[in-house]
């Protein structure tokens, strides 16, 4: 898997197929990037489950916060890692453990060894990208801010 360039269909496929996303490193503060991403993805119909030991037991944007992936009592499709690259390895191993199908590391987060372990276990891995930005780009919404989506299409756009 080439982790420098992801085909558009791969990203589209992930965003279309996952519904429940655990966000590791979700912040309770409204002006943090993770809070922005969580709020946006919720509005697009995803269930976002915040994971953050410091906030465990509390609520973020209407969702209960868990201290670790293993504590989530239901199945999750994807783990979104909002932590520094050094923390990504152990979180990826936990994601494999709990049976997630996708590991997604945020912009600036990358761990190639962890990605290989996850891929060997059959997971799809995306690194150094933001699902909010990718959703906005593929749906054309981010173009509303004058951002270059690099998408050219003669079809009516709806969603990703």
């Amino acid at each position: 898997m080439d982790h420098d360039y992801y085909p558009e269909d791969l990203i589209r496929g992930v965003l279309r197929s996952v519904r429940t996303i655990a966000m590791v490193g979700a912040s309770a503060h409204w002006n943090r990037p993770s809070y922005f991403a969580m709020k946006y993805l919720q509005r697009k119909g995803y269930r976002i489950v915040p994971v953050n030991p410091k906030e465990a037991g509390g609520m973020i944007l209407g969702e209960r916060v868990y201290g670790a992936l293993a504590e989530i009592p239901f199945k999750i499709d994807m783990v979104d890692i909002f932590r520094a690259s050094q923390a990504a390895g152990p979180i990826t191993d936990e994601a494999i453990e709990v049976g997630a199908r996708v590991v997604w590391m945020q912009l600036g987060v990358r761990d190639d060894a962890a990605a290989r372990r996850a891929e060997r276990a059959g997971l799809t891995v995306i690194m150094n990208r933001c699902p909010k930005i990718e959703y906005g780009r593929l749906s054309g919404e981010i173009g509303w801010l004058g951002i270059n989506t690099r998408v050219i299409s003669s079809k009516r756009k709806k969603g990703v």
Binding site: W30, N31, Y35, F36, K39, Y40, R43, G136, E141, I142, G143, W144, L145, G146, I147, N148, T149, R150
Partner: peptide
């Protein structure tokens, strides 16, 4: 609230964004 906080993409008021103007912006960026 999400729009005013810049948490979602969308239009509020044409002084800040407009769907015709945003096509122009993306065109020139490209």
């Amino acid at each position: 609230a999400s729009l005013f906080n810049l948490q979602v993409f969308g239009n509020i008021y044409t002084r800040i964004t407009n769907p015709t103007t945003s096509v122009l912006e993306e065109r020139v960026a490209a």
